[in-house]
Write a protein that binds this DNA or RNA. Structure first.
Lengths: 180, 180
DNA sequence: AGACAAAATAGACTGAGTCTAAAAACTAAG
DNA sequence: CTTAGTTTTTAGACTCAGTCTATTTTGTCT
């Protein structure tokens, strides 16, 4: 039945590498999608087969983590468990040049906007377990703050520790499982 | 000494009115900035003299409120007082067709993005009084949630009541003044 | 009348994002 | 080995946002 069709010529990883090179060379703003596609040896249209836009290239890992988090919350309904599950599988080596050198690249408010979108998605995922909207904001904010600190302060502990510390600044009932 | 230069031909209010008409007629997406400028009897370039983009037209009142809020926080350092000061001066008549009919206009995620930007600014303003970042997220989220509920549920109470209710779902120490 | 100031405008330009149709590259049969 | 089917890549056109520069308009002041 199969027939696989034309094999892929590129990948998210290849484009990510090309983009990161250019971001470090020229800065984020000065790099167009055409530039990235050229460097990756691929057409501009192909770039859009792999990414929705320029900022998405910088946030691949975040998106992967968000997807996993949403899936975990939907599966278990337990925020704390989902945090442990996702955060403990992420180490500093998973963010090669992303947030680490984000300012070196001249991260514009384009990136800031994209990050806010991710926060919004995070809050939606949190809503799968935390019913009260005001608490959703607080919990999502704590997670985002923990992750941000971890990414910024280079010599801190693990991501899980950072997020746990941040979430623990909230009242415990905010993150309790709805059932039981 | 003065010499005032050429008098203004348009205003935010005029452009806002023209834009709102078109949004209701054609929907938000289908309306270009050219359309708005034409309807207002002004050139496209002039539109950008009054607004930064299409979404900004929908959020004039929010921006005004945010500016006032930021000013109040900077002046007094008291979140609760700033909320009272700003929120009590805003009534339903101040949002003519904005959030009320936002879905009628087919509010895209363009508007959602713009709203997230506003939330980010709100959080920055909150930071003027709340030092702990995790609490900043919670407080800003509560304010946003209260305002959102007020704008959505038509027959509720005042904006101040809605925001106060939302903020009161947080521990009181989150919003206490830093000094004293 | 002439200098000055501020706003409006024309118009060009870059780049993002979308879309369509066609070409390319591979697999599985016949 | 040829053909049909499938998927990706690609070329290219198109709309629109946003920025920028230079020019024109319209007022006030001297």
């Amino acid at each position: 039945m199969a027939t696989m069709g034309r094999p892929r010529v590129s990948s998210q990883a290849v484009l990510e590498e090309a983009a990161t090179e250019l971001f470090l060379e020229q800065g984020y703003q000065a790099t167009s999608i055409d530039d990235i596609a050229s460097r990756a040896g691929v057409s501009r249209a192909t770039f859009f087969n792999y990414f929705g836009g320029k900022a998405d290239v910088l946030l691949v890992e975040i998106d992967r983590a968000l997807d996993a988090f949403g899936q975990a919350v939907r599966a278990t309904g337990d925020i704390a468990a989902a945090i442990v599950s996702v955060a403990s599988s992420i180490t500093r080596s998973d963010i090669p040049l992303l947030a680490q050198q984000a300012d070196t690249m001249g991260a514009t408010d384009d990136v800031t906007k994209a990050l806010l979108e991710r926060f919004s998605r995070l809050k939606d995922h949190v809503a799968g377990s935390v019913t009260e909207p005001v608490w959703q904001w607080a919990v999502a904010g704590a997670i985002a703050e923990g992750a941000s600190r971890w990414a910024t302060d280079r010599d801190g502990g693990s991501l899980l520790e950072a997020i746990t510390d941040a979430v623990n600044q909230l009242p415990p009932e905010f993150t309790q499982k709805p059932d039981q």
